[in-house]
């Protein structure tokens, strides 16, 4: 088990979890690491919580990870960051999240309060989790928040054994033309 590396990607339907997950699996493959993954589809596409699970390593059998066993949680929304951390992240792991806020109905209807970053930071401290908040003020296209996060993961080498070249190769597998150019620019920043 110690040789495996488990990744949970979490966000809200419509945030581009699929592309991020696909890029990570492909990058691992280019790094010659055995990789498998699975997205949750179905109803959740419509604005509900969406996750994608990825497992790296030859001793990872199921594509589904166990609760409390993710080495890293990658979130594209603040509330989902906390959810991913609560359910799957192990103590001592990494939390990297894009600090977008898409309030769920309970927050919007003032039944519960919006989660603030202080809560997440304190919780990370309590559980010895490395806290990585990602936010880009001048991002023109919010659809690229996923690639901003991927760039951050690459730059800080948050997934062992995967290099920047591997990520670039993966992105080039998945996109073309202007969209590829724009995403590469965002990735490099």
């Amino acid at each position: 088990m110690s040789t495996n590396f488990n990744i949970l990607i979490i966000g809200v339907g419509g945030q581009g979890i699929g592309l991020l997950s696909e890029a990570l699996i492909r990058a691992a493959h280019y790094a010659k690491i055995s990789a498998k993954g699975v997205d949750t589809h179905g109803l959740a596409q419509r604005g509900g919580t969406v996750t994608s699970q990825i497992r790296l390593g030859s001793k990872a059998f199921s594509p589904l990870i166990q609760e409390g066993s993710a080495d890293i949680v990658i979130a594209l929304e603040r509330h989902e960051a906390l959810r991913g951390m609560n359910t799957y992240l192990k103590n001592g792991g990494d939390l990297v999240f894009y600090d977008a806020v898409w309030q769920a109905l309970d927050v919007r209807m003032r039944q519960t309060e919006e989660i603030n970053t202080k809560t997440i930071e304190a919780e990370c401290k309590r559980r010895e989790i490395s806290y990585h908040r990602v936010f880009k003020d001048d991002l023109k296209n919010s659809k690229m928040q996923n690639v901003v996060v991927l760039g951050y993961i690459s730059k800080h080498k948050l997934i062992p054994g995967i290099s920047k070249e591997n990520y670039l190769q993966a992105i080039k597998d998945l996109l073309k033309g202007d969209l590829l150019e724009e995403n590469l620019k965002v990735f490099e920043q």
Partner: peptide
């Protein structure tokens, strides 16, 4: 089995919704 960590901040589920 490990005891449940009861200090985790609570969060309601996020159900699907119309776009």
């Amino acid at each position: 089995a490990q005891a449940e960590d009861k200090q985790k901040p609570l969060l309601n589920p996020r159900p699907a919704q119309m776009c």
